[in-house]
Computed example of a mutant assay.
Amino acid sequence: MKTIKSEKKLCLICMEEHEVDIVEIVEQEIFKGEELSFNSIYEYCANADELLETEEMIKKNSLAMKDAYRKKVGLLTSADIINIREKYGVSQKDFSEILDWGRATITRYENHQVQDRAHDDVLRKIDSDPKWFLEMLTRAKERLSSKTYSKYKHEASEQFKKKRNQYLVNSIQATYADYEDEIITGRVCLNLNKVVEMINYLASKVESLHKVKLMKMLWYSDNLHFKRNGMAISGLAYIALPNGAVPEGYDQIVLLNGVSFDTVYYGENIAYKFKPTPGLELNELRQSEIQVLDDVILKFGNYNTDEIVERMHNEVAYKCTEIYCIIPFTFAEQLTID
């Protein structure tokens, strides 16, 4: 028996006013054929050496027992269900409505009833797949007020963005897991937070920063820092493409959270003009790395796309690397800028 706290009150066991302990006891019980161990809460009267279970404690102890059962058989606990619902900012009633389960179903699952396996699977899918929850929310649109629907859609969209970003991060990191040779990534591990900060810093200083130019400026920044300090900044690996060096996974990198761009149309062509993300701070970049970025901006900030591609084509690193192959940092010493 473990004492959690004590308070002076009228004891309902001995009917005298004194310090009553709130205690925690480990209990064993069988529920649905499963032997369970869980913690229950009681009031304890030292005068009578007896325990009292209030109405509120009866509810909490019953839920603790059922949550112990849920854990044992691999179901979501009541707290897990609450967390999933609150992640989307949805009320109990509306969550049941969106799932088309009956208006009080979620309330029961969060308070006293153990869910069945089918409902548990649905809740797990909602937790892991915000896009699917958005689809269910759209189906339930007519059963919700327009204000409530808009609020839930916004929250679900934010969750989807977070999930999408994690998918992107995992995909990029999986690609880079194959690069065991440190000279490929500039003797540093891939740091996507730094990559995002580099893109934002360049976008904040360069007036017209399109994708091709951005990729070249990232390459020059990493190689210049390697030339000066024996290591790159980002941990990116660069591939030699016909228009110059680009980071491995560049199409996914530009979609990461914290990277912002406008879509610009030039006749039938589409371009991406990068811009700084409001509120994003530089927490990862060191001063020596920022200095290198400044030097690259000073050198190439006013170059147009064709000019920086031509400059890239004249670099020894590019000339000595076969097309579509990784450009090693061993050529950094021969970079045309210091």
Rank of each mutant, 00 (worst) to 15 (best):
G235Y: 02
N229I: 08
V169S: 03
A174C: 14
K147L: 04
T185L: 02
K211C: 06
N269F: 13
L144Y: 06
Y167A: 11
E180V: 08
S260M: 12
R164W: 13
S208G: 03
N170F: 07
R143G: 01
E142K: 12
V259H: 10
N193A: 09
I239T: 11
L202T: 05
N191Q: 05
I270T: 13
L241R: 08
R164K: 15
I184P: 01
K213V: 01
S234C: 06
M215W: 00
I233F: 03
V212D: 01
L190F: 11
Y265H: 11
K227R: 09
H210W: 10
L202R: 07
K141C: 00
E207W: 01
G230W: 05
K227V: 09
Y220I: 05
A203D: 04
M198H: 02
D251L: 15
E182L: 09
K151R: 04
P247D: 00
N257M: 10
E182Y: 09
G244Q: 00
K213G: 07
V169M: 06
Y176V: 02
Q173D: 15
G230V: 08
L190N: 00
K205I: 04
T185K: 10
M198N: 09
S150R: 11
Q252V: 05
E180K: 15
H154G: 10
A240V: 01
L168Y: 13
S146P: 01
I184M: 06
Y272C: 05
K141M: 02
L202S: 00
E180G: 12
M198Y: 02
G235V: 07
T263D: 12
K211W: 04
T263N: 13
K162T: 05
Y266G: 03
N200I: 14
Q173V: 09
Y152D: 01
E197H: 04
T148C: 03
A240N: 14
A232S: 13
K211A: 15
S208E: 12
E142V: 06
N223K: 09
N165I: 13
G267F: 02
A271R: 11
S157I: 14
L255Q: 14
M217C: 03
Y167P: 04
A177W: 09
I184N: 03
L209P: 06
K162N: 08
A240S: 12
P247V: 04
K163H: 10
D262I: 14
Q159P: 03
V188D: 08
Y167M: 11
K275C: 06
F160N: 08
N257T: 08
S204P: 07
F274W: 02
K162M: 10
E207S: 12
H225F: 00
K273C: 04
P242W: 13
H154F: 12
L209F: 01
T175P: 00
R143N: 06
L236G: 11
I239E: 10
G235D: 11
V195I: 08
L190T: 06
R228D: 11
L209C: 07
I233S: 09
E207G: 06
V196H: 01
Q166F: 06
N223M: 06
F274M: 05
G244L: 02
G258C: 14
R143T: 07
L190W: 08
N200M: 12
K227P: 04
E182N: 07
Y167G: 15
N269R: 13
E155Q: 15
D178N: 13
L202D: 03
N193Y: 00
L218R: 00
Y220T: 11
V264N: 05
Y152E: 04
S145D: 13
E197F: 00
K153I: 04
T185W: 07
L168E: 11
L224C: 09
K163M: 12
